[in-house]
């Protein structure tokens, strides 16, 4: 008798769990405004990528054309596939001291796997991940970018 009751109970419990699952999918089905599909080329104007999306490595500049990069080369060391090349140069500060600064932060987008290691390693937070994802070009050379803008300089007060 006990096993019979267990048998019946298992049937009812099984049916109940099936109904729970069906309730979840029914909720998805009857709330079409929650669908996650993006109609991409049509919604290009209004498309906003989410914050954590990794599209490319960029170096933000202020309106005074200042960035935070010290040219230390840690990102270059951390890059697993050599997508970053740092070319630095020496200048003389007004106090007469020799100082190494960034000349060109070269970034090969074509080789980059967007692993985010350079951004994590950067001690000054000079490089971040950008949200742009339309990178198709006709010439492979266009994928090699210089991240620091021409004539830019390091912002005041960045610790070496």
């Amino acid at each position: 008798m006990k096993s019979f009751i267990e048998y019946i109970a298992s049937i009812l419990k099984g049916l109940w769990t099936l109904l729970v699952g069906m309730k979840v999918t029914a909720k998805y089905f009857f709330t079409p405004w929650n669908h996650v599909t993006q109609q991409y080329p049509e919604n290009r104007d209004s498309l906003v990528m989410f914050e954590r999306f990794r599209g490319e490595v960029i170096m933000p500049h202020t309106e005074n054309n200042e960035h935070l990069c010290t040219g230390c080369g840690i990102c270059e060391i951390n890059c697993p596939n050599g997508s970053i090349e740092i070319i630095s140069k020496s200048i003389l500060t007004p106090e007469g001291k020799k100082k190494r600064i960034i000349d060109q932060h070269i970034y090969h987008l074509g080789m980059c796997t967007l692993c985010n290691l350079c951004v994590k390693a950067c001690p000054t937070g000079a490089i971040v991940m950008g949200q742009k994802f339309e990178h198709a070009v006709w010439d492979r050379a266009l994928l090699t970018k210089v991240l620091n803008q021409p004539g830019s300089k390091i912002a005041e007060g960045v610790k070496e």
Partner: peptide
């Protein structure tokens, strides 16, 4: 289409 809607997609469009 039904499958897509159950998976919060749009299906063929």
């Amino acid at each position: 289409k039904v499958c897509a809607a159950f998976q919060q997609r749009l299906g063929p469009m």
